[in-house]
């Protein structure tokens, strides 16, 4: 009974704040960028717009669910490489795209069709240049992704293609790895645990918990240039699986 009331209070507060924050925050950030855009280049305007999306994302996953949900981000990459990067993430929950806000780079995401259908958020994602991978040919996807990388934008992808039903890491799709091989940008595995019930697949109910995000060491082109796309995707998948095992075996952060 106590758990029910905790869930009720948490979800009521979160979704109320989420609605208010989205109704005020999104137009506010959009207006700031819109007012600046006549005086700056298109590239800089997009950079600011994407940064604004990151602020919004940080607000949604850091401030709104506090203290019911806590997020711990650890960066294990000690290289001096400033990017852009190709971030490869496991995918357990609808909160994963919001958690990408923790990556301290200008990032666009490779997403499925449904996120574009979310009112307001989908429109903002489209405007920011997010890529709906299922709605384009591989050639189109590769060209757009490489163009973004060449202009300094990092890419975050969830190569499982769909949220894991049981917490295991599903098979990876190779499209983003083919782009990596063709473009030569570093790959960075990002492992997320603890958010499988925030919210669980098929529901919007959020449960309290601790989310851990580990940004692993970047894998530079020299390390994978001789790999086939199949071998590369499975190598990265294994790195993600191994790290998740470590993360879930830890008793504390």
């Amino acid at each position: 009974m106590k758990d029910f009331f905790v869930l009720l209070i948490f979800n009521s507060i979160f979704y109320f704040l989420f609605l208010i924050f989205s109704l005020i925050g999104i137009p506010f950030f959009a207006l700031i960028v819109a007012f600046q855009s006549p005086f700056i280049s298109h590239r800089n305007a997009m950079k600011k717009f994407r940064r604004a999306i990151s602020w919004y994302g940080l607000g949604v996953c850091k401030i709104l669910p506090f203290p019911f949900v806590r997020v711990y981000f650890k960066d294990f990459d000690t290289s001096i490489n400033q990017g852009p990067f190709i971030f490869i993430c496991n995918h357990r929950s609808a909160s994963d795209p919001f958690l990408m806000a923790y990556l301290p780079y200008e990032v666009i995401q490779v997403v499925n069709i449904w996120p574009f259908k979310i009112p307001v958020l989908g429109f903002a994602a489209k405007c920011a240049g997010y890529l709906s991978v299922r709605e384009m040919s591989f050639e189109d996807f590769a060209n757009k992704t490489i163009k973004l990388l060449n202009s300094g934008v990092s890419i975050a992808a969830f190569p499982e293609g769909t949220r894991s039903a049981d917490g295991s890491v599903g098979q990876f799709h190779s499209a983003i790895f083919r782009v990596a091989i063709n473009s030569g940008y570093p790959i960075v595995p990002v492992c997320i645990t603890g958010n499988e019930n925030i919210p669980a697949r098929g529901t919007l109910l959020l449960r309290p918990g601790v989310i851990k995000i580990h940004k692993l060491k970047s894998i530079i082109y020299d390390e994978y240039k001789d790999f086939s796309p199949y071998k590369l995707k499975n190598r990265i998948r294994q790195i993600v699986i191994d790290e998740i095992k470590i993360m879930e075996g830890q008793s504390d952060v």
Binding site: F138, Q171, F172, H173, S174, A175, R178, S228, P229, Y230, K233, N234, R237
Partner: peptide
């Protein structure tokens, strides 16, 4: 070949 061996549509082309 998809679920157990992890191939996808692009791998099938290869």
């Amino acid at each position: 070949i998809f679920q157990d061996l992890g191939l996808d549509s692009l791998d099938v082309v290869d």
